[in-house]
Design a protein around this nucleic acid. Structure first.
Lengths: 333, 333
DNA sequence: GTGAAAGCGCTAACAA
DNA sequence: TTGTTAGCGCTTTCAC
């Protein structure tokens, strides 16, 4: 494979000029530029990005570390971030399958080795403490979907409390009192934020949410199925179930269908996130909208600011959710 | 940021030894290794992958160029390829949004600049001729979802003809004669393969498929919606519609729902691909299964063989589709 | 088992 | 506007 030297030789110029043609074409005379470009084409030249990054000490890339790529939640997130990043001429590299502490550490290491200018991190099941350590040691990291105490300037997150409240208020408004929950992992702060305010809001209205009506899931489809099965078997008198994300709501719905439980006439279901398919399934899922695009754009902007060496001083505002009423919750008469 | 030299100095060894600790630890005495590893940790050392790849002339990465990341079709494909690649210690880089000829060229250039050991290419709307040029000029490229004439050793594809036949046979078996099609772009060979054998199979059974019953779509949800609307308005007597991918079938279904057309009692719908959500929507979608996981694994294996310098001699077998009967097609009495 | 030294292909002063 | 040159941080012979 040819190098700038072979190109330079062929074009009868120095390698510095070839470099300039690629990086600052305006600094080279048009005739020279054309000669060089011709030589490049003739030799099928392709710049070695490793050498370029090594010499320039810039990678022009931002790293993203997430749990999955293929879920309806992450896919739009990744897309949106990619757009924002490539809009400024950088590129995105993403590693996925990073949930546990070791895996996230591995993802982070991957990004550091590639000398990313900034890194966006989805925390999965990491504890706030583990995240705090990461943020402390890596000044170019921004965390999404969580606000780590002490690092509010580099975290962008949804107002989960309001989200939980919206779901509770709507179910109450529809006359539900026998309510269950398919929760996320109890170690997951986001899940617990949604759940605690959901519970508080019910309680304030005199509706109890005893522990046995809350099943711990794992945010996945299959988990939603199983949790719903378990919940329905133990608590057949429920009239509504709050699933802490849509994915589990889909699973719950799937169980209901296979068990002959009609939604919403026999059981109401409300989700969280408002992913694309929430509007496509039957019945269309009533859910709390999570502004993922805004989350992505904000995170990307922060990352890009860190990438150019800016330091962030103002804490980030929480993103605000809203309720999307569709067909999966019934109003009790 | 520290380099192998700072680490070497701190550990009291040479930089070559530090390099060995990372690349061939068995070639260094344990005591030395431990000293070096300690120094690395103390200095928070992270190997510069650019320098490593530049010096070793190996990137250990395979590139993937696709149209989208977030669609139900591509997401599992990417996941599966990623797994196969990381299983051998390499990593995957993917660029998306590559549909037109220029965009694919851009994606390819991106991969070449990163010196990928091999590249997997999804052709989008590229012509066979454009692909042939690419394959000719880039011996490390493998193409998925299409077989480019003359390059069968580096192409892995579904048997679209059989797929089209399966759909036709099933509709015939269910007694349908007034059949429409929401096709892909007519310039797309995959779509045309499915369609031509679909049409031939119907014709062999004495069922005509006139041009006005075939609408050209673009493989996307929204396109499915619009095509279905158009088709239904022009051809209200249809009893069944074949959508050339599931995404468009979802769009068609969505239109039917909003237009008050019950599927399958008023209209039968059959899709193609069998993506995850085909089993989750209502009614569950009858469709032709596309073994995407096998496609991904085969492509990854080919790419990995090219990556180690093997040259491929045997042409690849076509992947075989099968019909998945669910609830969206009704048997006419 | 370890070290010295010559690159890998490019960028970025600095000179000319 | 163009060329010279000294690295960027690592790998990899080849000696020892």
């Amino acid at each position: 494979m040819s190098t700038i030297h072979t190109v330079a030789a062929r074009a009868g110029v120095s390698s510095a000029t070839v470099s300039r043609v690629m990086n600052e074409p305006h600094k080279v005379r048009e005739a020279t530029r054309i000669k060089v470009e011709l030589a490049m084409r003739e030799l099928d030249f392709s710049r070695n990005s490793f050498a370029a990054s090594l010499a320039s000490r810039r990678s022009n890339c931002v790293g993203l570390v997430v749990s999955h790529l293929s879920s309806a939640f992450f896919a739009p997130l990744v897309n949106e971030i990619e757009e924002a990043v490539s809009a400024v001429g950088s590129y995105l590299i993403v590693t996925c399958g990073k949930n546990s502490e070791e895996e996230v550490a591995g993802g982070l290491q991957f990004m550091r080795q590639r000398r990313c200018d900034a890194i966006i991190l989805y925390p999965g099941q990491l504890s706030d403490q583990a995240l705090a350590e990461i943020l402390l040691g890596n000044p170019q990291v921004v965390v999404i979907h969580r606000t780590v105490p002490g690092f509010a300037t580099r975290c962008v997150q949804l107002d989960n409390h309001t989200g939980g409240r919206l779901a509770a208020e709507y179910l109450l408004r529809c006359g539900h009192h026998a309510i269950g929950v398919v929760a996320g992992p109890h170690s997951n702060p986001e899940s617990m934020q949604r759940l605690s305010t959901f519970r508080d809001t019910l309680q304030a209205a005199g509706v109890a949410l005893p522990t046995e009506r809350v099943i711990e899931g794992s945010f996945h489809f299959e988990s939603g199925r199983q949790c719903m099965a378990e919940l329905w078997t133990a608590q057949p008198a429920l009239t509504a179930v709050f699933c802490l994300n849509d994915q589990m709501a889909f699973g719950a719905l799937n169980y209901c269908r296979s068990a002959g439980i009609d939604v919403p006439s026999q059981l109401s279901l409300i989700g969280f996130d408002d992913v694309e398919y929430a509007d496509l399934i039957h019945p269309r899922l009533t859910t709390v909208h999570h502004p993922v695009a805004a989350l992505a754009r904000t995170a990307a902007q922060l990352a890009l600011r860190l990438a150019v060496g800016e330091s962030l001083t103002e804490p980030q505002d929480l993103l605000v959710p809203h309720l999307v009423v569709r067909d999966s919750v019934r109003t009790l008469s």
